[in-house]
Design a protein around this nucleic acid. Structure first.
Lengths: 234, 234
DNA sequence: CGGCTGCTTGATCGCTCTCAAATGGGGTGG
DNA sequence: CCACCCCATTTGAGAGCGATCAAGCAGCCG
């Protein structure tokens, strides 16, 4: 157990939410955390549930998605190692507005609300870090809103792929692989379109040798070409 | 001057960012603020400028908008009395990502970054309030993102009008007037469409007696009908 | 009174959605 | 190990929403 605490502390030292927190205080945060593992396809929490916990990804990838009353699904973001999700408790939200799903075997640390409140109260730097992270998310979300409002589907899909590459790309021979499964449906829900349109677009790119993709796998061969499409330099 | 400080303090006591701050501390915040007045059509700040100040609206209405590299404009939100805008300094953004324009004669209080940092450091409750406000903005932005991704233009325009009514509606004979000038172009930039499409939609509503509108003025006669459209109960 | 700004309206085009159906790879259970 | 089934994907055809292009109109201010 002491060993696991040690390990947790080490993880926390690389997490932005706790940046600037000295060693013993990191221990305190580590000791107050719960560790949760989820298999692919299972949820850390569901939209509408009471927002009890704040999470930080330790390993894997977590998809955060929302379902509209009409049954349309949209992907809000993916959270990778070191990133937080389920941040409703930070700002007083009573229910989670989205669902968090592991897309590969994933592990997260969780703090329940009173514990987190107490930590923020005692160590205000955590609140300041949270402010920074939330600000960045807001910025990012507005950027995507702007894209959605003003750009064609092809550019949005190109941008989405580039973001995924930046976040979870691994160099392989002849290109960059996105390290977790991404379906056409996922890409559609990220970019606000349909899987049919995504399929057509990606097929087109495939014929041009820009990407290669199989079942739930995508390799980008010529990222630069995607950048050209995203920036409309074509 | 002492009188003005008193007045400022009174204003701050109703501002959510400073909620929970005791009297003398409110005075401190008030004393550290600058008061800025802007005529309609002029800017508190421009997109791309160094983000020196955080603002809180005292009176009037402030339009926050972004311009894309391609020259498309989108309206991010309107900020009314008591609301903050230009919050980049809160989360460490170095440049304003948007432009803030007075749409009617407006007045705001402003704190420059080091002053605000110091206030938050000394009174962490401000940081917690900021966290809450930013969280709400994030929630709101995601909701609008979801609308844009999944809903038809007419519903989005209906929702936009209802939001404007909720935020700045004044009862007049036979309806609710939006208290500041809103052009078709504005509505288009709020909802991610063109002024032509907005014009057609609003004209249609006008013929059904749901709204009445003149040059930059909009009166909603039957808000309930708009709700029906927004919720697709038609 | 003239010009500007905001609004309306028509005609057309095309991007993207919708509906439909077929294909194929992978995993599972026998 | 094989057969089957399911899920992801592809592809076609067609419709339609909304953008684009193009004028014309009408308050309002100078």
């Amino acid at each position: 157990m002491a060993h696991e605490l040690d390990e947790t502390r080490k993880i926390l030292s690389g997490v932005r939410l706790f940046r600037g927190l000295a060693g013993s205080r990191l221990d305190e945060a580590a000791a107050a955390s719960r560790r949760i593992r989820k298999d692919p396809g299972t949820n850390f929490f569901r939209q509408g549930q009471e927002a009890r916990y704040l999470f930080v990804v330790v390993g894997g990838q977590v998809k955060v998605s929302q379902l509209t009353p009409e049954g349309h699904q949209i992907v809000v973001r993916y959270a990778g190692p070191g990133e937080m999700f389920g941040c409703a408790p930070l700002y007083g939200g009573s229910e989670y507005p989205a669902t968090a799903t592991a897309v590969i075997p994933s592990e997260a640390l969780a703090w329940n609300r009173p514990v987190m409140d107490r930590l923020m109260e005692r160590y205000p730097v955590i609140a300041l870090n949270a402010l920074e992270l939330l600000g960045e998310e807001l910025y990012e979300t507005r950027a995507r809103y702007q894209e959605l409002a003003t750009e064609r589907v092809e550019r949005r899909v190109a941008r989405a792929l580039l973001r995924l590459v930046a976040q979870a790309g691994r160099k392989v021979e002849g290109g960059v692989l996105i390290e977790f499964p991404v379906t056409r449906q996922d890409l559609a829900e990220i970019t606000g379109t349909t899987l049919h349109t995504v399929s057509r677009i990606v097929s087109g790119w495939e014929q041009q040798g820009i990407v290669a993709s199989g079942r739930r796998r995508i390799v980008i061969h010529r990222p630069h070409a995607l950048v050209s499409i995203a920036e409309d330099l074509v």
